[in-house]
């Protein structure tokens, strides 16, 4: 059956053949080991060192990982660039915060409502703007974020431009402010673990395969039978829910919410940078990207040499990555060492 040049080339293929054998022996969840190990290590780190300041910086890293991993479902798996993903964080945060601050709901009920609001927005937007391809979709997401921020700025029930604050008494229900801070950290850790597992399950499922097909060639995917409009919409919804929930948690911990920090466009772009840095389309990439980006930022902000030009240095680094390592660190490793593919999902 096979043509002569085929068998000839097959002999040189032992490297990929070997990795296939390794893969079969290693079990099916091997790709999840590294991501989960990193999240767990980050979670217990502050307990080991016992310093609150460590916990605060790890909170930021964890937040980055969770948001970047969420965005990755849309950006990395489906190939749609959302420049305004922060809108889900902001809207979820606002809805949850309103329920806690004005309606007196508990954090436990407000969080799912924030997720629901974000998911619902993504569903409606999915129907409307996911038809747009490439740069047009990216622009539309910017427009949506700006429109939402401007609207909330005028929306009296949410406090307009001044936003809302939580009464300090609220934290008493959670054992005082200190306990609430620590509680927020562990909730975030659990949510981060959850999104990483979801990300892995999507990556290795039939649904995920459909998303990857859309990323590679949407028209060809439709011809193959991938129902692209609904697959894209669900990917969008999935990538929006966790940021919505985390928004509630973040502003609960913060104690106040305002339009500008809730819908900061640069925050969206930071998420993209983290996904790119680590490697889009992989489970591990956004984790590495989140840790790497925040560590780098921390270093630049505190180093006397780069303190004033940290933004410019970060920009130059991003440019180098985009131009020379577009697959990100994990993607680069996967391409360089195919045998590692199973471990570096």
């Amino acid at each position: 059956m096979s043509s002569p040049n085929d068998t000839q080339l097959a002999a040189t293929d032992t490297k990929t053949g070997l990795s296939a054998v390794l893969a079969q022996n290693a079990g099916s969840f091997v790709g999840l080991i590294l991501p989960v190990a990193i999240i767990l290590a980050l979670t217990i780190w502050p307990t080991i060192t016992g310093k609150d300041i460590t916990r605060e910086s790890i909170f930021t890293i964890m937040l980055s990982i969770a948001l970047a991993s969420s965005l990755n479902i849309l950006l990395g798996y489906t190939g749609y660039v959302s420049f305004g993903h922060v809108v889900f964080f902001g809207l979820g945060g606002y809805v949850g915060f309103y329920l806690m601050a004005v309606q007196g709901w508990s954090l436990w009920l407000a969080m799912p409502m924030g997720g629901l609001a974000a998911g619902l927005l993504a569903f409606l937007l999915g129907k409307a703007i996911l038809r747009l391809r490439g740069g047009y979709f990216a622009l539309a997401t910017i427009g949506v974020n700006e429109a939402m921020r401007a609207f909330i700025n005028n929306f009296k029930p949410f406090g307009g431009p001044v936003g809302m604050t939580l009464n300090f008494q609220v934290y008493k229900d959670y054992g005082g402010a200190a306990r609430a801070l620590s509680l927020a950290f562990y909730i975030l850790a659990a949510l981060t673990l959850l999104i990483v597992i979801i990300s892995y399950l999507v990556r290795t499922s039939k649904f995920g395969l459909g998303l990857l097909a859309i990323r590679e060639d949407e028209d060809a995917a439709e011809v193959m039978g991938v129902v692209a409009p609904s697959a894209k919409t669900w990917a969008y919804v999935l990538s929006a829910i966790l940021p919505g929930i985390i928004g509630v948690l973040f502003f609960f911990k913060n104690g106040s919410i305002e339009p500008v920090p809730a819908f900061r466009l640069n925050f969206s772009i930071e998420m993209i940078v983290m996904v790119m840095l680590g490697g889009q389309g992989t489970v591990l990439g956004p984790i590495i990207g989140g840790v790497g980006y925040q560590s780098l930022r921390g270093f630049l902000l505190t180093s006397p040499l780069f303190k004033n030009i940290q933004l410019a240095v970060a920009g130059a680094l991003l440019l180098v990555i985009v131009l020379f390592v577009p697959a990100g660190l994990v993607g680069w490793l996967r391409n360089r060492f195919p045998a590692l593919r199973r471990v570096l999902q």
Partner: peptide, 17 residues
Amino acid sequence: LNELTVRENVIAGSCFG
């Protein structure tokens, strides 16, 4: 689908067909 393996390409054909 360039960034997927040959086998994944064909699996996609079967999954969504």
